[in-house]
Each structure stands twice: as structure tokens, then as C-alpha cells.
Nucleic acid binder design. Structure first.
Lengths: 103, 103
DNA sequence: CTGCAATATATCCATTATGGATATATCCTG
DNA sequence: CAGGATATATCCATAATGGATATATTGCAG
């Protein structure tokens, strides 16, 4: 799973959001560290919908602009949790390293 | 930082290793989950050396085959630790989510 | 009123990272 | 003697990414 995919699915765990909303959410959640480019966002959402990790929830028209809300599927939830576990193991490779040489 | 970079630097935290050794180490550390392709390995090592995140430690000739050992630099150690912290925050987005909706 | 930023989606294009495959060379095992 | 492990190196196709541009509306500052 790529990082963009991970952050998109992660943002959707709180409830349905539209593409641009995911970009803003991700930027906030990361304190401005993670910025997903719009090209990446919409292409990734298309791919994720094909893979059934997200689904179109509903569409809204606000001020003449269409908002397409996506929700995460059960499959998507499983996938992002599995990825979180995988990343945690990767983190532990570096942080779980307290004077191992001294044994 | 890409994943290949992260795992390579991580593998070098225990001491100098040669390219093929890093591939084997990473495979072991991850229980066979993470497999870095040889093309990725040597190209990444070249790039990391340019960026001063790793340095050539020494070369050895074993059975007529050259082994080029790389060690992680202080800069590389800082970088991989920073990345681990960044990944930990990413993990927390998913795992640090215990019935938030119930508030 | 005009230009710019924010909102919202969409697509093009160049760059980068990746992995599969191939090449070369040695050693060991079946 | 063939095949796998060891060890480095490179080619090439694919995939992911981001910058840029396009379109359209709203609101705000100059």
C-alpha cells in the first residue's frame, strides 16, 4: 500500500469525505507535514473505488460545485489496519533498539 | 523517504553490511514480508551515498567475489529516526482511534 | 471592479522509485 | 553437470507522485 492510499483511507475512518476534504483533513492531521497533491488524490480515489476499498457515499451540490463523498468499505478498513500493523513493525525496527549490542 | 531507503538504513543500524547482506537481513527482520529487489538495492545505495546517509566502510574479497560494506552515517541515523517518528504518527492515525465517535 | 485565494474536480506530463529480467562470476550440493 | 546461493550491476517497463493547467464559483482585499 502506498502512502497516499494509507492517508486517504485513514482520513475516511472518521466518516465520509470528498476528495478536497481529504486533502485538507490529511494536512491538518499531520500538522501540515503530509500534503497529497490533487492529481494523486483523484487518481488514487478512482483506483481505490475499483479495488472496493472505498465507495461513493453520496453527492452534494454546494454553491454550484459538486462534492462527491467517499466512504471506506469494510475491506478498506481491514486493509488500512493491516497496513498500520505493518508500519508499526517497521517503526519497531528503529525504535525498539535499546542497547541491543550490550547483551 | 521511500520504504526501500528506510529498510536499508534500518538494517545498517546494527553495523556495516554489504548490499546482498542488507537484502537478506531485511527479509529475515520482516519474516519474509519485505523483499528489496537487487536493482532497487544497488541504485538506492548509490543514491544514499551521494546524499551522505551511508558511506562505504570497507571492501572485502571473499571467494573471488567483492563485498562492499556500507555503514550508516550520523546524518543517516538522524534521518531514519526522524522517519520512524513520522511513521509512528501515521500509525497512530489508525490505531489511536478507540471509539472516538462515542464521545 | 478586479485580481487573488479558497473550494472542487479533472487531466497532462515529466520525474522518480520499483521490480523483473538478464549478465557475469564463483562456490557448493545433489 | 545442473541449479541454487552469493554478489554486484544494469536495462527496461510499469506505477506512483507532484507540478501545472483547466474550469467554475464564492468571497475578500486592494
Amino acid at each position: 500500500m502506498t502512502e497516499a492510499t494509507y492517508f486517504i483511507l485513514s482520513a475516511l475512518l472518521d466518516g465520509p469525505l470528498h476528495g478536497y476534504g481529504i486533502i485538507l483533513r490529511t494536512r491538518e492531521q499531520s500538522g501540515g507535514q503530509v500534503r497529497i497533491a490533487v492529481a494523486t488524490m483523484y487518481r488514487t480515489l478512482d483506483r481505490l473505488e475499483e479495488e472496493s476499498l472505498v465507495a461513493t457515499d453520496h453527492e452534494q451540490v454546494v454553491d454550484g460545485r459538486v462534492r462527491r463523498y467517499y466512504r471506506i468499505t469494510d475491506e478498506g478498513t481491514d486493509a488500512v489496519r493491516a497496513e498500520a500493523a505493518r508500519l508499526q513493525r517497521a517503526v519497531n525496527l528503529v525504535t525498539g533498539r535499546v542497547a541491543v549490542t550490550g547483551a
